[in-house]
Write a protein that binds this DNA or RNA. Structure first.
Length: 564
RNA sequence: UGCCCGAUGGUGUAAUGGCAACACAUCUGGUUUUGGUCCAGACAUUCUAGGUUCGAGUCCUAGUCGGGUAACCA
């Protein structure tokens, strides 16, 4: 990356590029991705991952993975493992892996340094007292009565805090900065709190734990991070970040903030996603409705599509909401290129071709992927009894309906023209079968007499088809902004009940019995699907619809309100 | 109420003082044995008002609107 390639760098890449050009940090670029292991990674994290690892790649630098595990009560190794897996799946590998807890000892020693410098003190105030003394935006703060303890007293107290002599909440270590600052973070922020809790890595070794601000900058510093990228809500923490590393006179990374990802119709709050899992509103963190990396993976999204999405979203400093349609575009674009075409009939309707001999079959040749010449062809059986999609037939069709109607003719994809002669219904009036005839002269898909058909529909040989369950997904929230909850409602009331629709009686091609979990397929005219990695079993196949195809017909139907 | 940050089509971004560009979405039309793909077309005086300048989306000032911010969370 040289200076002449200036164009179109986002503001962070621009800044890093300038720093490299100016020889800052000896031209070194070292970033880190610092998740707290208290939940699974979501698509918002993917943006940060792509940024941090991308920066390292583009500038010939390094990127660490650091687990920000300073709050033992919320964290767990389950999350550590899941985070590693998700990052790898996205296609990134970290140069070094650390935990903030690796630095507990170092941080403790540094805290003692600060106490000795008279820049930190042990405070006995309760949470309520601290809040009261902090003042407000319009009110100056008041000094804690413990602010002027001697160094000796502080050293003694802090050591006893560490030794477990006090109960949770009884004391804190605070930085002595300025109780009058315009920036609330600088009004003597807490550095340590007492928590007699078992940490997922350090066990019961510690009962005092560093707060985020005290841990983060120093962790960055220890690792030689040059650019510490985080989201906008940490903007007003930067002065504190700078104050700590400044007082300690250690390597000083540059914190840079960017706007986090917001996607329409999508819940991005980790806290609320945790609630969905805990409350059983979804199957788990990897439920295909979830905006988690593991949810997208199980749903059939590819790492390429997610990386492409984060690239298109861009990096800026202002809050914006990205249309979920952009995600769909990215995954369709990728799957269109790579997914083999197969037939899956979601709502089967039996078709009997009266002029096709009983018990006879022939093989029809079909292209595997029209977007990929090298994909080759495949043979599929055709016979007297087929299944077609229920929505491909209408008794009273509107003029723009290009599919099968009574007396009308349609093309069976890669096969023949088909005409419907008669509708067979059960006692409830439901259509159970179509009696049809085919035209053997139209084998190539064209009629020798030149007559045309407007529509082409997919079909599957009834005796060859295998059963499958198919799960259709939609946005999890019907409102664009799921955090905008109407009066008297809970945000969970806004969950789209149709976010998951299960088709129990789908018919798919026998070849799909061997499909491996996650491998993408296009069910022609129905969308992109993959075998579910958890629930699918031999003999009881389960497919997830990753995304629909663009569908001009259903769009037109909705608009015109024409009959279904 | 203080402080910090931001503002370019319906949406997301670009333009680094010099012709407002790209993509999505939407709408038209063409191609098509997937109502897919592909192709072509339509869609903005850059929040407002002043200022600096030959020239401002970009720099300055003021305002408006939006976001963040007062855990012993991260």
């Amino acid at each position: 990356m040289n200076e002449s390639e200036h164009k179109s760098l986002d503001f962070i890449r621009q800044r890093v590029s300038d720093d490299v050009a100016n020889g800052k940090n000896d031209g070194r670029v070292h970033t880190r991705f610092p998740p707290e292991p208290n939940g699974y990674l979501h698509i918002g994290h993917a943006k940060s991952i792509c940024l941090n690892f991308g920066l390292a790649e583009e500038f010939g630098g390094k990127c660490n993975l650091r687990f920000d595990d300073t709050n033992p009560e919320k964290e767990d190794t389950e999350f550590v493992d899941a985070i590693r897996e998700d990052i790898r799946w996205l296609g990134f590998d970290w140069d070094a892996e650390y935990f903030a807890s690796d630095y507990f000892e170092k941080l403790y020693l540094w805290a003692i340094d600060l106490i000795k410098q008279g820049k930190a003190y042990v405070c006995d105030q309760t949470v309520e007292q601290v809040r009261e003394y902090r003042g407000g935006w319009d009110k100056p703060g008041k000094n804690s009565p413990h602010r002027d303890r001697t160094v000796e007293e502080n050293l003694d107290l802090f050591s006893r805090m560490k030794d477990g002599e006090f109960k949770d909440g009884e004391k804190t270590l605070r930085a002595k900065i300025d109780m009058n600052s315009d920036n609330m973070n600088l009004r003597d922020p807490a550095m340590y709190r007492i928590r007699h809790a078992t940490h997922h890595r350090t066990g019961d070794q510690w009962c005092i734990y560093p707060n985020y601000d005290w841990a983060h900058g120093q962790s960055d510093s220890i690792e030689g991070i040059t650019h510490s990228v985080c989201t906008l809500e940490f903007e007003q923490h930067r002065p504190l970040y700078d104050w700590y590393v400044g007082q300690l006179e250690v390597h000083h990374p540059q914190q840079i903030e960017f706007a986090k990802l917001v996607i329409s119709n999508t819940m991005m709050s980790k806290r609320k996603l945790t609630e969905l899992v805990a409350g059983g509103f979804v199957e788990g963190w990897d439920d295909p409705r979830m905006p988690t990396i593991s949810g997208f993976r199980r749903r059939g999204f590819t790492p390429e599509s997610i990386r492409s999405f984060t690239k298109r979203v861009g990096i800026t400093k202002h809050n914006s909401t990205t249309d979920i349609a952009l995600m769909n575009l990215c995954i369709r674009e990728h799957l269109n290129r790579i997914a083999p075409r197969v037939t899956g009939v979601l709502d089967p309707l039996k078709v009997v071709i009266e002029n096709y001999p009983e018990g006879e079959f022939e093989m029809r040749t079909t292209g595997v992927n029209p977007e990929d010449e090298n994909a080759g062809t495949r043979e599929v059986p055709f016979g007297r009894e087929l299944y077609i999609e229920r929505s491909d037939f209408m008794e009273d069709a509107p003029k723009k309906f290009f599919r099968l109607t009574v007396g009308g003719e349609v093309r069976l994809r890669n096969a023949f023209f088909l005409k419907c002669n008669e509708v067979v219904k059960d006692e409830t009036g439901e259509i159970v079968e179509l009696r049809c005839t085919y035209d053997p002269e139209t084998s190539g898909g064209k009629a020798p007499d030149g007559r045309k058909v407007k529509g082409t529909i997919h079909w599957i040989s009834a005796v060859h088809a295998i059963d499958a369950e198919v799960r259709l997904y939609d946005v999890m929230f019907e409102n664009e902004d799921p955090s905008d909850v109407p009066e008297g409602k809970d945000w969970k009331d806004l969950i789209n009940p149709n976010a998951l629709v299960v088709k129990q009686n789908a018919k798919v091609e026998p070849i799909l019995a061997e499909a491996s979990a996650g491998a993408p397929y296009q069910f022609v005219r129905n969308g992109y699907f993959c075998v579910d990695s958890k629930d699918s079993q031999p003999g009881k196949l389960v497919f997830n619809r990753t995304v629909t195809l663009k569908d001009a017909w259903s769009k037109q139907q909705k608009k015109g309100g024409s009959p279904k």
